[in-house]
Nucleic acid binder design. Structure first.
Lengths: 229, 229
DNA sequence: ACAATATCCAAACGGTGTTCGCATAGCAAC
DNA sequence: GTTGCTATGCGAACACCGTTTGGATATTGT
C-alpha cells in the first residue's frame, strides 16, 4: 500500500468504474430504445443496483444525461475532426467534414436528437456550461477550414453584414474569430444542419436518393464560397 | 326535437365542446409549461374531470398530442399563407413568408418543437398520416411562390440535379410539382429551418442581433434565386 | 316506460424520479 | 487492534405518470 498516495485508492477505482458503467448503460438505453427508455430505474436494473444507489454517483438523472450530452458532442466533434484532417484540398476536406456531420447523425440518431433537440422532458443544462464547450468543439473544425482557406487566399473574405457576438465562442477558438467569418460559418451550418434535421424527423419525402440530394446541397454551399481552385 | 336530424343533438354538442376544451387545456399546458407538463392527468385536473373520462373522447394521450400537432401545423401554415398572400412583388412575399416561419417559431416555441422535433417520449404518429397532410400545408405557400415566380418568368428554372420523389407530396400540391423545383424548395427550406432550429436550441451565440442575421440570411437565399426584378 | 347507449369515476396496476433512514463495508488514525 | 468516520448500498415511501376495469349514473331513441 505504498503507492496509495500516488495512485487511486481501491474505492476510488471502483467508483470510477461504476460511473463509466452507469453511463455506458445509459447510452445503450438511449441508442437502442430511444430517449423514452432512458430512465434512472432502468439504468439501475441494467447495472444491477438499486435506483437509490445511483444517487451515490450522480446528483440525479439530469446529471447522467449531461454526461451523455458532453460525450456525444465530443464523439461527433471527433468524427468531424477526423474527416477534416486527412489529405486533399481544403474544399475536399470541407465537403468531407459536412458529410461526417450527416453520417454521424445517421449512425447515432438518438444522440443527434439529444444534442440538437430536447427529447428529455424536464432536462435543464447545468450552469457552468460544460455542454457549451463541447458544442463549440463540433463547430471548430468548420471554422478552422474557413480560416485556413482564407489565410491561403483560396476564398475571398465574406462581404460584411450584421455583427455576430463573438464573445462567447472566440475565446474558445484558437486565435479568436472575426464576426463576418463566424456569421458565414453559421449560415453554412444552418443549411446542412437544417437538411439533416428535417431528414431525421421525416419531413423530407422518403424513398428519394437523399445521399445525392445532400451531396448536391453541399456542392452548392461549397461552390458559393468562391474557391479559386 | 324536429331539428335533431339536421343539427347536432345535445350530447353531440356537449361532446364537441368538451373535446375542444380538452385540447385547449392541453395546448395551454404545452405552451405555458412545456412538453414535460403535457400529461393526461394534468389535463384532466385542468378541465375538472377524472383521468379515465378523457378516454371517452380520446384513445389516449397520443391522440390528444396528434390533435395538437395537426392544429399547430395549420396555425403555422395559416401564418405563412397570410404573410405570403399580401401585396408586393413575389420576392417580397417570399421574404415575408420566410419571416412568418421564424416569427411563428419564436411566438410558439413549444409548438415548433412539437412539429419539428420529438419532445414527447413515446409518441407515435398515427397511420393515416393526418400530420403529413398538415405538414405539407406549411411547405405549400413556398412552393406556390416558386411556381408563380417561375410561371411569370421572374426566376430561371433550377439546374437539374438528383431527383426527389414527388409522389408523396405532388398529389397534395395543386397541379403537381417538378422534381427539380421541389428539391430547390427543400434546399431553401433547409437553410432557414436550420437557422431557426439552431437558434431555438441555443446553439447560436446569444446577445447578437439575430433578427438582422436572419434577414441577411434570407437576403442571400432570395438573391440566389436570380430574380430579374 | 323501457332498453340501449354514452358518460363518468373510483380503484388498481405497473411505471417513473427522488428522498429518507438504516445497515454495512472500507479506511484512517490512535 | 480497536475505534470512529465516511462512503456505499438498499428497502420503503411519496408523489407523480398512462392506462384498464367495473360499476354507477345520466341521456337518448323507441
Amino acid at each position: 500500500m505504498l503507492v496509495t498516495k500516488e495512485t487511486l485508492t481501491r474505492r476510488e477505482r471502483l467508483r470510477a468504474e461504476l460511473i463509466t458503467e452507469i453511463k455506458r448503460a445509459a447510452r445503450r438505453r438511449l441508442t437502442e430504445s430511444g430517449a423514452g427508455e432512458l430512465s434512472l430505474r432502468g439504468i439501475a436494473r441494467d447495472v444491477g443496483m438499486s435506483p437509490a444507489s445511483i444517487y451515490t454517483y450522480f446528483k440525479g438523472l439530469d446529471e447522467v444525461v449531461t454526461g451523455l450530452i458532453v460525450d456525444s458532442f465530443e464523439a461527433q466533434a471527433s468524427a468531424i475532426r477526423s474527416a477534416s484532417a486527412g489529405q486533399g484540398s481544403i474544399k475536399e476536406r470541407l465537403k468531407r467534414a459536412t458529410w461526417a456531420y450527416r453520417v454521424w447523425a445517421h449512425d447515432s440518431p438518438q444522440e443527434f436528437r439529444l444534442l440538437y433537440e430536447s427529447p428529455i422532458a424536464g432536462y435543464r443544462a447545468p450552469e457552468g456550461g460544460p455542454t457549451v464547450d463541447a458544442a463549440i468543439a463540433v463547430m471548430s473544425p468548420f471554422m478552422e477550414l474557413l480560416r485556413e482557406a482564407s489565410a491561403t487566399g483560396q476564398i475571398p473574405p465574406p462581404p460584411p453584414g450584421p455583427p455576430i457576438d463573438t464573445g462567447a465562442t472566440a475565446p474558445r477558438l484558437d486565435g479568436g474569430i472575426d464576426s463576418d467569418w463566424l456569421r458565414l460559418g453559421i449560415e453554412i451550418w444552418s443549411q446542412f444542419h437544417g437538411f439533416v434535421s428535417l431528414e431525421l424527423n421525416g419531413h423530407i419525402p422518403p424513398g428519394s436518393a437523399l445521399d445525392d440530394v445532400y451531396d448536391h446541397l453541399i456542392d452548392n454551399i461549397v461552390s458559393r464560397l468562391g474557391f479559386t481552385d
